[in-house]
Design a protein around this nucleic acid. Sequence first.
DNA 1: AGCATCACCTGGCTGC
DNA 2: TGCAGCCAGGTGATGC
Length: 283
Amino acid sequence: MPELPEVETIRRGLAAVLPGRRVVGLEVTGARTARRYGAAALQSALVGAVVVGVGRRGKHLLFSLDSGRVLVVHLRMSGQLRYLERPDGVPLVPHTHVVTRFDGGGVLRFSDPRTFGEWYVSIGLDGRGLPRELDGLGPDPLADEMTRAGLARHFARALEGRRAAVKSVLVDQRVLAGVGNLYADEICFRARLRPDRPAGDLEAAEVGRLAGATLATLRAAVAAGGSTLADRRYVDVRGERGRFQAQHAVYGRAGLPCPRCGAAVARLRVAGRSAWLCPRCQR
DNA sequence: AGCATCACCTGGCTGC
DNA sequence: TGCAGCCAGGTGATGC
């Protein structure tokens, strides 16, 4: 369940090792992973190309190539990327669907039991240099130009008149790119807002709290290297766990005390997904 | 148009 | 102990 903080941690790990490296081999064994444009298109665009940078937009990883093209990787629910400088003797984990070999011997392995993840090389870039496939994505909350006031204005427009729950707007990637189920609950907690509040009912001060909580939560989670749950589905490119799970206030904590007021954390369903909240101090 | 629900998947857990 | 059934969730399709 990698969301923005986990994808950003992976991006940083890859940005430290990949730029300047040339792809010398690509093995795509999972047809579903390359379903968008096919494995052959991946092969021809990647083999021989040099990675010049590793970026991110929301939950998408963006590998810039010296050809000017961009490889897009989305991990969805169970995708995992591991980089090995010396892969000899390190067994492939089950459900490994892509192995990318670089000059110098380093290898990037992609495993994904549920096969929702995908790899594709973009058909082309828009005026801002972003893959056209990502046209509908909202702004990235950790982009340099994002401020609390700017995000509050953005939220105010996005929430206005909407009857849907605040949480379903938070996880709508067209509104904001990067928040998923886990961080939406933690953001609502920090903002002291119930996730099932109708979005259009929020007052200006509450929208401001939501914007501040979004930035603070995501920044703290990135600083902690993301969240690794009991299933260990998320680890970084070196196999290290995140540490933000120790700071979770409500997510997955039904029945445990709210860290702010001590009331028991409750679980309910919002927009078809589990949601956790403190029924006393979130309004 | 906006919102809710479903389908896609597999691993892990629960309960019989 | 074994196994059926359910749940997890990002996104795109579908339906109301």
